[in-house]
Every structure is written in C-alpha cells, then in structure tokens.
Design a protein around this nucleic acid. Sequence first.
DNA 1: ACGGCAACTACACACGTGTGTATGCTACTT
DNA 2: AAGTAGCATACACACGTGTGTAGTTGCCGT
Lengths: 231, 231
Amino acid sequence: MTTSGPDPEDLTARARIRDAALRHFGEHGFERTTIRGIADTAGVSSGLVRHHFGSKQELREACDAYLTKMIRRLNDQVRADMTPDDVNYIALSRAALGPYQQYLARALAEGWAAPVFDGLVEMGEQWLEEVDGKRPDPPYADRRVRAALGVAMALGVQILHRHLSRNMGVDMYSPEGDHLVARAMLDIYSHPMISPDEAAAMRDALDKVRGTSPQAERVTALRRDEEHDHD
Amino acid sequence: MTTSGPDPEDLTARARIRDAALRHFGEHGFERTTIRGIADTAGVSSGLVRHHFGSKQELREACDAYLTKMIRRLNDQVRADMTPDDVNYIALSRAALGPYQQYLARALAEGWAAPVFDGLVEMGEQWLEEVDGKRPDPPYADRRVRAALGVAMALGVQILHRHLSRNMGVDMYSPEGDHLVARAMLDIYSHPMISPDEAAAMRDALDKVRGTSPQAERVTALRRDEEHDHD
DNA sequence: ACGGCAACTACACACGTGTGTATGCTACTT
DNA sequence: AAGTAGCATACACACGTGTGTAGTTGCCGT
C-alpha cells in the first residue's frame, strides 16, 4: 500500500517518519522532541509529518500501535515455537525489541503504550502458567499481578539503563555490559532473595497488621528530624 | 535559619516551593511542569520561585539534593538499628520515601537524581553483603551490579505504577493495591524464577556463544515479516 | 491528454513559558 | 525613627514550537 518512495530500496516516507519519531521520542522523551527535529532526521519537511499523522499526539499513538502489533506478533511466535530448552525467552524479547527499547522504556515510564505493557503481561502470564506447575507450594498472589510485577521489574532495568551503566562502569548496551547484566540477572532470577521461613513470617505480619505498622513512627521521626537542620 | 513564614505552624515559603515542585515534577514530569504552576500550588508568585532558586533547572537540582540527603539519612538509620527480624527494610524505605515516590520515579526515569539512585544501590549492597553469607554457592556476578539491578527492578514497579494499577484493577497506592503488591512481591522474592539446573545451562550458554545467537535469525525474520504488511 | 488526488513544501500565526527587571512591602537592627 | 536587607509581586520580553493554510509537484486512472 501507499506509493514507493524515491528509492525502492528505501522505506516509504511515512515509515521513515515513524522510525525517526521512535528514535527521537526514545532519546529525548515526548515533550523535548520537536516535530521539526523528527522531520529533519526523516529527511522531510515538518509539514509532511502533520500530513501523514494528524498531530504530535497522534504520531506517538501511531508509534505505540506499531510496537503493539510487533509485540503481539512476537507473543504469537514465542507461543508457537517455544521449546523446553529455550527458556530464556526474555533475551529473545529484548533482542526483538532491539532499537525500540529506548522508546518503549520512555513511553511506558511516561504512562503511555498501555497495550504494549499489557501484551508483555500476557506473555508473562503464559509463562507463569507453565512454571507454576513445577512449584511445590501454591502462589501467594494472583498470577496476573505477579506477571505484571515481573514485567515492571524487567522493564525497570531498561528504563534505568543510564543509572545502571554508571554504576557498572560500562555501557549497558555494549557487549560487555550486556554480558554483565545477563549474568547478574541470571543470578537474581535463580536465587530467592528471601528465605521461605522469612517469607512466611513476613506474610503473616503483612496479613495481620495491615494498618499502622511500627515502622510508621520511625518514618515520621525521620521526617521530623530532617525539617530542623537548615535546607 | 531563615525567617518564619506568616504562620509559624506553616513551613517557610522556600520549603513550600520545594514541596510543590516535588509534587509537580512527580505528577507531570519536568517539561510539562511550569514554574507558574508550582508557584500557584505553593501559594506564591512565580517570581519568588526564581528568587529562591535561580532557574527551573536549579530548582530541580535542589529537589534532588533534598532527596539525596534524605536517602542518606535513611541509609544511616537502617544501617544503625537494623534488627534480624526486621528484614523487610524495603517496606520501610517505601514508606519513608512516601509522597516523594512519584518524583523519585520520574526523576530517575528521566536520567536525573543519580546520587539518589547510588544511595539506594549502596543500601542494597550492604544488604547483599549480609545475605550473601547465607548462600551455598558463590554469586555469579559482582555484588554492586546485582545491587544496582535489584534497585532498578524495585524502582521499575514504582515507575510503572500506572500500568500495574490498570492490570491489577485497583490503584497501586490504595491500601488494597498496596497489600496486593506486597503479597505478590513477597512471592516473587521468595521463589526463584529459574531452577538451578536451568540457570546453570543458561549460564554456560551465555558464556559460550557470546556473539551471534541462534535467536538472531529469528528476530530478523520477525522484523522482515512486519515490514511487508501495510502499516 | 487531462483532470484529480495524494504527497510534499513553505510560510505565518498564536500561545505558552522561561527569564529578566523594576517596584513595593515587611521586619529587624542601630 | 530611619535605614537596610531580604521577601514578594507584577509586568514585559524573547523564543521555541505546535498548528493551520495556501501553494507546488508528480503520479495514476479514464
């Protein structure tokens, strides 16, 4: 559909604009991104951006829709040819999202791209459905909630990549950084951070107190302190 | 220091502005936040904001510094009176950050507030130092990297609270939502998502291939597909 | 060949917003 | 009582940026 661009090898202008928007939104966020900037990288005039996508808002929604479709396709594919020894579908997802990770992280952090998030949750849910069978004890919480939390945690790593890179000393997206992250993630995912008995105790405490906790006083005390010394 | 405001019960104007800025930045992000809006909620004129803090940028940095100091104090306190049965320092941190969670999440997602993040990593590192002793096997990765990843993951939940609330059906910051999240988090933290043997296999694979993986082809295939059907 | 439609551009407008400056006001000091 | 320093306000300017509109090119079907 649509006509071919000046060079058949190249993408159509509309696609180029979309890609440029993806990059700009991802790198600078929605607000700081200018339509003129997008048009510039796409090699078109700013008016054309408006011509194809009605407004800045609609352009972003188009980006979301594009990624949503991609996620859904990825979902189907994973669901289709998932083999037992191919457990680290996480790595596959990350690789597939590839250049759009940045945009995805930004958009999600800004509260948008809901369908994308939900798609990921759906994937996580399917995965949990399979994994839950191997568990001896029943899960504490609803599967969807756990899936959503898992997705949010995984995305947190992407969103905060700057801070992570700084703390690691190497860029997270460089080969070394990626390797480092993968190793650490593997370690985290394969080891419980809380022992079963501790967890049980905390669960009891959680279901019991529910309202005011002994920590509340401490917190308020902390905040009172801080008000005294000069800002 | 500084003079007392019109009402000694109230905070000084400077503090009120800072708090208002914290709220505005947290709710709407840096770009969408206007100085006039902050001044409005603080009950002062926009000029006064500029008078106290030089510019919008400096105001944000002041907010960061304020939170950094608070985090550091929290760090010290936790380090001081941490008792064995008081493992869930996470809940304490969350409670202490309280109304600033929103700001923190936004600022970190936008790449700022580096000292705050580093402070949290430091706390996580200390905690890991204690926990690592109980482990039978040596960790796969550097402690700081694991701490940083843990912090990023925990913060991801805060940053993506909107999406989580939507998927849970209740507001994450409501009592019910908080309870739900706490339960699920407890479940996640107390159960490894990957079994030890799987982890070992994946670790071997990870250290081995390193370069091109069999997934690469699949991914490119995925992306090729998507280029054909009309946008 | 020609009309029409879509792709694309250039230009201008309106508005929000950060920032600068001049001015009034209050409270404390000597 | 007067002066002075800090607190607070109002007003105006400059600039970026989203959006609207008119105009131009080029391709395709009849």
